[in-house]
């Protein structure tokens, strides 16, 4: 926990004050820039990992990470309603997709909930792809793309509540093995899917950036 607190203590807004290299040069020491000076960030900080560009850093919470200045300002002034309207549209689209998949793969009593399983696995892979595309390689998509596609569509598509209630339902029906398999299976596949989405997309984004530099 302490590392997380350190990120915010002191200067008030250390994320803003810290000048960081964009993700494109992530491999380089982000503190190599002498203009950055010493200070608390001098030397590699094993707790922090690479220091990201504060404006496009996906943060930990891609929906609401108030370390990220653009996201802190998301609801400021008259900008709240367009964001809520986009989230409503995105969430409705995502939920319609989830419902469509549930109609294609109807659940039977005491059986593996394939529709919810596939929905969550697919949604996790896609959020990995999306957030790398939107935040890495020095790219900046439209500021409303992340809330619409990430928070809205994919958030509305995937579901945690149906997952938990289905596990409890399977336990209730006496299918303890199936419940445990579904519980662990979804968790492993979802985490694997988001890792795969992030890793593959990151590799492609870096390769594209390298070839852009080579041709430039």
């Amino acid at each position: 926990m302490s590392g997380g607190d350190d990120e915010r203590s002191g200067a008030g807004e250390p994320y803003v004050s810290r000048r960081a290299e964009p993700y494109g040069s992530r491999g380089a020491n982000p503190y190599g820039d002498p203009a950055a000076g010493p200070g608390p960030a001098a030397g590699p900080d094993p707790d922090m990992g690479p220091v990201p560009d504060p404006d496009i850093d996906p943060g930990v919470d891609p929906d609401v990470d108030l370390h990220v200045p653009t996201r802190r300002a998301e609801l400021a002034g008259g900008r709240a309603w367009p964001v809520f309207a986009l989230l409503a549209c995105g969430g409705a689209l995502g939920a319609a997709g989830r419902y469509g998949l549930a109609l294609l793969l109807p659940a039977r009593a005491a059986s593996f909930p394939w529709a919810t399983f596939l929905t969550n696995a697919l949604g996790c892979a896609l959020i990995g792809v999306l957030l790398v595309l939107l935040t890495e390689g020095g790219r900046r998509g439209h500021p409303l793309l992340r809330p619409f596609l990430g928070t809205g569509v994919l958030g509305g598509f995937t579901t945690f509540s149906t997952y938990a209630v289905d596990v409890v339902g399977l336990l209730d029906e006496g299918a303890a093995g199936l419940a445990l398999g579904y519980l662990a299976g979804t968790l492993l596949v979802a985490l694997g899917a988001v890792w795969l989405g992030v890793t593959v997309t990151r590799r492609l984004v870096r390769r594209a950036a390298r070839s852009r530099r080579a041709t430039a």
Partner: peptide
């Protein structure tokens, strides 16, 4: 409502981000 209110994608992504930060 509950399906869209809750999210698995954000949960997974956040877990991965914490790992990427060494947490």
């Amino acid at each position: 409502l509950c399906g869209a209110f809750t999210t698995y994608s954000t949960f997974s992504y956040e877990t991965l981000r914490l790992c990427e930060r060494g947490r």
